[in-house]
Design a protein around this nucleic acid. Structure first.
Lengths: 353, 353
DNA sequence: CTGTTAGCGCGTTCAA
DNA sequence: TTGAACGCGCTAACAG
């Protein structure tokens, strides 16, 4: 096998045939077995592989799909990436990863560069949605599937989680365990998920007729551990909940740390529910009950939607809503009514004295 | 701004000039301001953006860099991805993500497809290295930088961690805390990191003249939580260490879970050290002391090496070794000599009763 | 300073 | 069944 770059012309010369014949044989089009053999052999010897760029220019497809997420480090996006990578690779596409920040302007720049045609389609998961961003998405030359909520009048394929329903699951679960003073640690309210989760929390609390209190809701600056630590301290300084729902697993881990630091037991003193159901919910000690927003399924669905649109550009717009589930773990397991005495213990807690 | 696809020819027609002039203006080459204006205007109106594929075919560069890792889900690779994404994007390249499994054959297939020229270079981090893989790397037409160890006679750019030195750091740290029965939970020994870490552990123990024991070393089936749980159970069934070093943070978290389950305190009864210093080491309760193998720095260095080679293909081969650090956290903090009584406590432990 | 033209490497008509 | 020739959209070398 040669290591030099070889072209159709070189293979053709070596096989003593025309480049058209080489192209045909390698693409499996009808040819005499005699010719096919010669070509195969020549191609083999030269280690020939068709140039992707030239092929793309000719056929008008790059066989690449772009995925743009706000933060490559966020476990949720990692899950999505993982899944998209699988689906897309299986369909014969390569995955181009674009880490835009949460800044809508950067995403607009990205969309414009997408029109350079380096990919056949885009999966976009915006953290903040502005009218400008929507306009840009609308006027994109290439198909886009949005992962996340979009205003109802936007005619773009999209798949989103029902995080309001997720908050309902969390609140209901805690209420059924007898908790009433259910606090909420949110992320930034000016993000799409932040706004949706706050709305969901409020609705769920009202519906259950549980006491609402401004001091029982705090918003972290960001969906990160560091911001969560500050937010949890603030919350516990101004409020005495018997349960906390967090808009994110990272925020839940932060809460867990602060609770431990203050000598509060989970779930005995305070039950804890996270959201996203990422690996860290399982890894934590105690493990954290979490609302599974089905990030992998959302990603998979979005990827398939995009693949479908690529093969049928005129298909009607799809809007898919994925229903959440609740994964119950130690942070809410076997919890008696508040105020009662913990005798049994689930036996799987860390740091037992 | 139009949404239809526009070409140089269309812009030229609209501006009433030649396509060459359009190309020049848009690439910032000298032109009269009169002409430049006309062209800019026309391009603007048509929403023209140069086609990436055609440009690539012409200039022979795709402005894409590929990154191939064994497992997109592994936190270490996520760190690397994050960093590579930054460096590469800043340099004007797009990142193509290839998730090969740990199977060398898949990686060979990947390398062959790379010769299709869809990227200008590759960053490869193989979990297992076979002679065939090395041959394929050697004969690649495109530049490759390997992240990880390579036999000394392979003339390929590469950057690796000194995980043997890392094991020395871990063992030394524990020894200085007075621990002597230092056990080791490794990953699969037939992987590059697995082999290196076992060798490092053995060397470090011998050097410190600490007691070695077959029962004190177990190998998990995989570098995952699930495999780690089994391995930790096995270890504790057959051995009574006062410290455990794990080849990986995930394995360390698994050990933490098993220790908690058995009522053993960390660090009082058993001190724990992980490896890789990923986010989960910080997130855990207690937080885990971990050998920082500098995955971000390794990735950054490798990416820069590749960029350098792209601009100077004849540069001499670089082999960089990144030295590890130790990040001390709660899982080994303030630990007195074994057998003595814990009175002080660092005050930042979880699950205090 | 600007226009014309020749390919980059491939797939795909059209003739033979 | 096979070969010759064209063009995808662009940049660069050459003319004018």
């Amino acid at each position: 096998m040669e290591t030099r770059k070889s072209t159709l012309a070189l293979v053709a010369e070596r096989a003593g045939v025309s480049i058209a014949s080489v192209s045909r044989v390698l693409n499996g089009l009808p040819a005499s077995s005699h010719l096919a053999e010669r070509v195969q052999a020549a191609a083999q010897e030269l280690g020939y592989v068709a140039d992707a760029t030239a092929r793309s220019l000719k056929v008008g497809r790059t066989e690449q799909i772009a995925l743009a997420v706000a933060d490559v480090g966020n476990p949720v996006y990692v899950d999505m990436m993982h899944e998209v990578s699988r689906v897309v690779t299986d369909a014969g596409y390569r995955l181009v990863l674009s880490s835009t920040g949460s800044n809508p302007d950067d995403q607009i720049t990205l969309l414009q560069s997408l029109n350079r045609g380096y990919a056949d389609g885009l999966l976009l998961s915006p953290l903040r949605v502005t009218p400008e961003l929507i306009d840009t998405i609308r006027s994109s030359r290439l198909p886009i599937v949005v992962i996340g909520s979009l205003p109802p009048d936007v005619e773009v394929d999209n798949v989103r989680a029902d995080s309001a329903a997720g908050m309902t699951l969390a609140v209901a679960h805690l209420a059924e365990l007898g908790r009433r003073r259910i606090a909420f640690i949110n992320g930034p309210v000016d993000t799409v998920p932040g706004a949706a989760r706050l709305a969901g929390y409020t609705a769920a609390m009202v519906k259950r007729e549980l006491p609402m209190n401004d001091d029982a809701t705090v918003g972290a600056e960001d969906f990160t551990l560091a911001a969560g630590l500050t937010a949890a301290e603030t919350l516990l300084d101004q409020s005495t909940p018997d349960a906390i729902v967090c808009a994110n697993d990272l925020l839940a881990v932060a809460a867990l740390k602060v609770l431990a630091r203050r000598g509060l037991r989970v779930p005995e003193d305070i039950a804890l529910v996270g959201m996203d159901d990422t690996d860290i919910a399982e890894l934590s000690i105690p493990s954290i009950t979490s609302v599974d927003l089905r990030s992998a399924k959302r990603a998979r669905t979005a990827a398939r939607l995009l693949l479908r649109r690529l093969e049928d550009p005129s298909a009607s717009v799809s809007r898919v809503v994925i229903e959440p589930r609740l994964t119950v773990r130690e942070s809410t397991a076997g919890t008696p009514a508040p105020g009662s005495i913990d005798t049994a213990g689930s036996g799987v807690r860390g740091g037992a004295a």
